[in-house]
Amino acid sequence: MERVLRIGLALLCVLLLSPAFADENDTDWKLVSDRNEIQVYMKHRDESRLKTFRGVTRFELKDEFALAAVLNDYGSYPKWLHFVDSAEEFDRRGPLDRSLRFTTQLPWPLADREAVLQADVQQKVTTEEESVMIELINQPDALPPNNDYIRFPEMWGKLGFRRLGDDQVEMTYELILDPGGYIPAWIANILLRDAPYFTLERLRRIILKPEYQNQYYDYLDLLRGPGRPDSTTNIAGQPKS
């Protein structure tokens, strides 16, 4: 019951405060790229020198727990999350609320960057809708400064899916960040525009790899997926002995 209440309160806060759950038909979003069944949209924010980018794609995903398996594999992040060179978890208040640090290597003469974020999972499972969204909230002061990196002064994002019916899902990746330091806004916007496309293109391939199938995580209330308490996997996602 406590977990259900916590998820409900998190969802309520996000619905009220977060632009991630704004109307998907918002006319402020402009289509800037449509290739390989991935649409990338752009929105300008008056309060920021940079633009917000959103990528959307649809594909077949029979086992929804595969997304959790990929997200728990921090070593794999550089293989699919665009610009990310490393990812680590440095704090956990619960399986749905974690603190993460990402680093990215930029070409000379640009300095390398790092992001310190809270990853907050919101899930919604009803008879009419099923979705899991990870909101990435900037926490630049959660770790001491690192002289080897410039820390992003602004960053916010979301990554997740919603069930469309049968085995089809719609995956969304949305990102806004200010890289800090000296990077002209026009260059930063070009880099940001590419991030949703390459992230989703890689993720939808990696999520289907055998090592991410048949997992089970008891903190997610998902309807699809072979991993269940009475199946051949335990709650840690490992085969039962």
Rank of each mutant, 00 (worst) to 15 (best):
Q39D: 05
G227T: 03
N189I: 07
T103Q: 06
A111P: 00
D148E: 14
L9H: 06
Q105F: 05
R202A: 15
R54K: 15
H82V: 03
R101E: 12
L136T: 07
H44R: 15
R101K: 14
Q122W: 08
L5K: 12
V56T: 01
P184N: 12
K158Q: 12
P184L: 04
N147D: 15
A66D: 11
I206D: 14
Q168W: 05
G227I: 01
G160H: 01
L12G: 08
Q39P: 01
Y216E: 12
E88C: 05
P145H: 05
L222V: 01
L12K: 06
L96V: 10
Y182T: 14
N214V: 03
H44P: 07
T52Y: 02
Q122H: 11
E135I: 06
G237M: 04
N214G: 02
G181L: 05
E129L: 08
D28L: 12
W108L: 14
D97A: 11
R204K: 15
R98K: 15
G165R: 06
R151L: 00
G157D: 02
V14M: 11
D23I: 00
T233I: 07
D97V: 04
E174T: 14
I134S: 04
I207D: 14
K79T: 12
L9K: 12
L50Q: 02
E89Y: 00
Y182R: 13
A22M: 04
I150W: 01
A87V: 02
T232P: 00
Y41I: 03
F161S: 02
D91M: 06
L177D: 05
F198L: 10
L164A: 12
P107R: 07
R6E: 15
L12S: 11
R162A: 02
V56N: 00
A188E: 12
P140T: 04
V132Y: 03
R54Y: 04
T57S: 10
G55P: 09
Y212A: 01
I150L: 13
T233F: 06
R92T: 14
D46K: 15
Q118D: 06
L9Y: 10
P210N: 07
W186F: 15
M133C: 07
L50D: 03
R35Q: 13
V40P: 05
R162G: 01
P226A: 14
Y212N: 05
C13E: 13
D26P: 09
L136M: 14
L200C: 14
G180D: 03
R151H: 01
G8F: 10
I7K: 07
E211G: 03
T57N: 02
A119Y: 13
P78H: 01
M1Y: 11
L16C: 13
G227Y: 05
L17P: 00
R92A: 15
